[in-house]
């Protein structure tokens, strides 16, 4: 049953998931791809410099993964609190 307390707990968990995923989102793009790109560029990854790779490849790939992780977590959360659609 979706009681008031249940809904509050559901929302709180959702916000926790958002903060975890958006932190990673920020670190890979703004962190690795922009702010620390020069430091990471001293590390080679095959033919790439690591910072360059994060900026032009890695961030984009990790973004896709982040959304699917979110989908997975939220589907489980919807079930747990009985708020999924029929």
């Amino acid at each position: 049953m979706a009681t008031k307390e249940n809904l509050a707990a559901y929302w709180k968990t959702n916000l926790k998931y958002l903060s975890i995923l958006l932190s990673i989102w920020f670190i890979v793009s703004y962190g690795c791809g922009i702010l620390f790109v020069d430091a990471l560029d001293t590390i080679p990854l095959f033919g790439f410099k690591l910072g360059f790779w994060f900026a032009q490849q890695g961030s984009e790939i990790i973004f896709v993964i982040l959304i699917f992780v979110y989908v997975n977590w939220m589907n489980k959360l919807d079930q747990k609190y009985g708020v999924a659609e029929d």
């Binding site: 791809g33 790109v37 961030s59 973004f63 982040l66 979110y70 989908v71």
Partner: peptide, 20 residues
């Protein structure tokens, strides 16, 4: 390398869209 502003900018928005 600066071309990454378009690559990250035009994909990263979808994370915001999906989550928020």
């Amino acid at each position: 390398r600066d071309g990454a502003v378009y690559l990250m900018g035009w994909t990263g928005g979808y994370v915001l869209l999906a989550l928020l």
